[in-house]
Amino acid sequence: MAGLTLLALATSQPARAQGRGRFQQGGARISQLDNAKIAFITSRLTLTQDQAQRFWPMYNEFVARRRELGRSARLLRRDADNPALSDAQLRDNFNQDFAIKQQQLNLEKDYFDKAQKVLTLRQVAQLYQAERDFTKEVLKRVAGQAEPPIGTGQ
Rank of each mutant, 00 (worst) to 15 (best):
F134W: 00
T152I: 11
L33D: 02
L139Y: 05
R74E: 02
F23N: 11
E68K: 00
Q49F: 06
E68W: 04
N95D: 08
P149I: 14
W56M: 03
S86F: 04
Q32S: 13
L139T: 04
M58W: 02
N93L: 09
K136I: 15
V124N: 01
D79V: 06
A125Y: 00
Q96M: 04
A88G: 08
Q129S: 13
L85M: 06
V124H: 06
T5Y: 06
T5S: 12
K140M: 14
D110G: 08
L75G: 07
L127F: 05
D92H: 09
L7S: 11
Q123V: 03
A80S: 14
R67Q: 11
L7N: 08
G151Y: 02
Q51A: 05
G26T: 14
Y128P: 05
T46Q: 14
S86K: 07
K37Q: 09
G144K: 04
I150C: 02
N93W: 03
G3Y: 03
L119K: 02
A64R: 09
R16H: 12
T5G: 15
L139M: 14
Q51M: 03
A52W: 04
R71N: 08
D92P: 06
S43T: 10
N60V: 15
T120C: 00
G19L: 08
A39G: 09
A8H: 07
D87P: 04
R20N: 13
V124A: 10
K117E: 09
L4C: 13
R132F: 11
G21Q: 14
P149H: 14
F40M: 00
P149K: 12
I100N: 04
L127H: 00
Q53K: 13
Q103D: 09
Q53L: 14
L47T: 00
A84D: 08
L9P: 02
I41Y: 02
T42W: 03
A84W: 02
V142W: 04
T5K: 14
G19Y: 07
L47C: 00
D92A: 13
V142G: 06
R20M: 13
L139F: 08
Q116M: 06
N106L: 08
Q154A: 14
R132K: 12
A125L: 04
A130C: 01
F134P: 01
R91G: 05
S31Q: 13
Q104W: 06
Q154P: 12
R29K: 13
K37E: 03
K117F: 00
D97W: 10
D113Q: 12
A10D: 12
L4F: 13
D113T: 10
A115Y: 01
R141G: 07
A88I: 06
I100D: 01
G153Q: 05
K101R: 12
F112T: 04
L45R: 01
T46H: 13
D97H: 12
E131S: 09
E147C: 12
G70K: 05
I100S: 02
L69V: 02
A73N: 07
Y111S: 00
R44G: 03
R132S: 08
T48F: 05
A115N: 01
M58R: 05
K109G: 07
V118L: 06
Y111W: 10
G26M: 15
G27L: 15
L9Y: 01
R22C: 10
Q126F: 09
Q123Y: 03
T48E: 04
K114E: 00
P148K: 11
N93E: 07
T42A: 10
